[in-house]
């Protein structure tokens, strides 16, 4: 991983931040794109201090091609090329389908699915030219199994899995691999708010008996991003304690 450059979208905090930290620990230079510009900078600076790699935190709105193109130009100017793209930026706007607002559908699809396409389209051009690169998309097990209250989110994540397969096929001849990870229930600020009863119910659905951690997701992303996964493309790995088999 040393000397490689990785872009992580939505990397200022949460699972994206864990991924950025792990890739940095393995020696990669880190570029964080996030709508939270100050937080992207702060996270990038902290990673540079702690891991001695080159970092850049920049504002990028993944739903807008012009914004991503501008961030990409700055990144290529500074780092020369991009070896790894982690499409992590995502949001939820949950609600039962029959009560869901159109704006909540559009927002989630726009960030979670269109955003992956926009970033892939932009960065792929650099990777295709270099004839190497690895893209890892963050999907979700609810994209595979569905989830009441997440019509928009599950549709967007199922879309990401399809997009992963098509981009893997289109880029394979150039040595650019595309894979996805599908996290299950991961311990985050959101799941910390659950009651003991709710958490107990969740855990009973998980064969390994506990919620996952952001580091569990980061480990799988790092593997797929690295040359150790050189013969793997178009795949989605579930990181869910065995919930979906």
């Amino acid at each position: 991983m040393r000397g490689k450059t990785a872009v992580i979208t939505g990397g200022a905090r949460g699972i994206g931040e864990s991924i950025a930290k792990l890739l940095a620990k393995m020696g990669a230079n880190i570029i964080i794109w996030d709508v939270l510009e100050d937080q992207a900078r702060a996270t990038a600076d902290a990673i540079a201090r702690n891991h001695g790699v080159k970092t850049l935190g920049a504002a990028a709105d993944v739903t807008r091609e012009a914004s991503v193109e501008a961030a990409l130009d700055a990144a290529v100017k500074e780092f020369g090329g991009i070896d790894i793209l982690v499409n992590n930026a995502g949001v939820t706007r949950d609600g039962l389908l029959i009560r869901m607002k159109e704006e909540d559908w559009d927002l989630v699809l726009s960030i979670n699915l269109k955003g992956v396409w926009i970033c892939t389209k932009a960065v792929a051009r650099v990777m295709l030219k270099a004839r190497k690169g690895s893209i890892v998309n963050i999907a979700s097990v609810v994209g595979v199994m569905g989830n009441a209250g997440q019509a928009n989110y599950s549709a967007s994540k199922a879309g990401v899995i399809g997009l992963t397969k098509t981009s893997a096929r289109e880029f394979a001849a150039r040595g650019v691999r595309v894979n996805a990870v599908a996290p299950g229930f991961i311990r985050t600020a959101m799941t910390d708010k659950l009651s003991d009863e709710q958490r107990g119910r969740l855990q009973s659905m998980i064969p390994l008996g506990e919620l996952g951690t952001p580091d569990d997701v980061a480990d799988a992303v790092a593997f797929l991003a690295s040359d150790r996964a050189r013969y793997i493309t178009g795949q989605t790995i579930n990181i869910d304690g065995g919930m979906v088999m």
């Binding site: 051009r125 295709l128 030219k129 289109e170 880029f171 001849a173 150039r174």
Partner: peptide, 11 residues
């Protein structure tokens, strides 16, 4: 050239 080459060439 393959189809991806043509797309890149055009760009």
């Amino acid at each position: 050239a393959d189809s991806l080459d043509i797309a890149e060439l055009v760009m």
